[in-house]
Design a protein around this nucleic acid. Structure first.
Lengths: 202, 202
DNA sequence: TGTACATCAGTGAACGCGCGTTCACTGATGTAC
DNA sequence: TGTACATCAGTGAACGCGCGTTCACTGATGTAC
């Protein structure tokens, strides 16, 4: 009955999704054609529709997968600030800036996701929620509202800092942006906002 | 000699650039075709190359124009924090989120600009520098380094907050993101980072 | 063990379409006399 | 004032190309006997 072993097709699908993650983050959604995405997985364009209903379907799958990977990275972090600080430093590193294909999907695609279908934005919403929660959990366990607010502030700053560092053509300015980002992020982690009052915290 | 009055062509060109600003911010760079861009200006595709050398040339012109408009908005602001606070509240308003065509080019296009030609990134770099400087000038005149760092933190947070609010499909979450953004931004304006020390400033 | 077979993942050509760009042209304009 | 003219901004059809998608097919596979 079963010709290829049961996992053969699922393995291929996973390979497509994984490679597509890299290419979509490098070339953008509109900038990455189906034929190129399939060729990355060692296949031809015709096989695409045996795995996905449409390009939109693949993109939604990739967005979910990418956010899942990022969420897992955060869950794998030991609890507490030091581990989060290490995450922040890696996120704002020149290595991350220079390798979008291996990096954060939000930094690579956030504005394009904002222009995407309701399906993709729904998938993104679920993933983003989980990531914000994980960051918040690392910030302050017994003041969840302030932690959540600080997590949103931290995450948005990280995302656009990498976007800006990538957009800018002057390497010195780009490095300065990353460095300032680290300082600002650590500052923000040290003193999460509590309403409008100032809260020196450590 | 001169058939149409001297400004006729320049006026048309300005109209193309202005309308293209709206469409590019709404539909993205890859997502906006030359024919559509020209039709927005009441022209047909053929006339495009009498005004611009290529689509890339138009995009570079639009990016420069858009950042110029944003820089002028900031220069027009009266000096001091209250005016900047008003700017921040407008930037993080649902109105800005819901009308990308009339809004910030960075919020709409930053990650796509990062994937664009050296020419476009160079133009973006010049414009972004000016905007950062203007924000820094509003933050702290007599501690320019700290002000610059805080300006970068503030601007990146604003940009990705609007991007995230647009990407998310749940209206409640989107509003929460904007509201948190306002709180975080005002907090950040009140206490710019100075190295790693805490500096309550007003 | 060897052969015939049913399955189905993957191929590659083709579909209509819109892309960025080119170009021969049209026709509204202000000028010359 | 009226007509012929030179200018040139804008038209619209066409170029080759890559897009997302479809489909008749191929050929490697494990099974049956």
């Amino acid at each position: 009955m079963v010709r290829y072993d049961a996992e053969h097709k699922a393995t291929t699908r996973r390979r497509i999704v994984e490679r597509a993650g890299r290419r979509l983050k490098c070339g953008g959604i509109d900038g990455s054609g189906v034929a190129a995405l399939m060729s990355d997985a060692g296949l031809t364009n015709g096989a695409f529709y045996a795995h996905f209903a449409s390009k939109d379907d693949l993109v939604a799958t990739v967005v979910a997968d990418q956010l899942d990977i990022q969420a897992k990275t955060l869950t794998a972090l030991p609890p507490g600030r030091p581990a989060l600080e290490a995450f922040v430093r890696a996120y704002l590193s020149p290595e991350h800036r220079d390798d979008p294909g291996a990096g954060c999907p939000s930094a690579a695609l956030l504005d394009e996701i904002g222009r995407s279908s309701e399906a993709i934005r729904g998938i993104y919403t679920d993933g983003a929620r989980r990531i914000i929660d994980h960051i918040a959990a690392h910030l302050d366990a017994h003041n969840p509202l302030a932690a959540r607010k600080a997590a949103l502030g931290l995450y948005t700053m990280l995302v656009a800092t990498v976007q800006l560092a990538r957009a800018v053509s002057d390497p010195d300015l780009s490095n300065e942006i990353l460095q300032s980002g680290v300082d600002n992020a650590l500052h923000m982690m040290a003193a999460p906002t509590e309403g409008l009052s100032r809260a020196p915290a450590v």
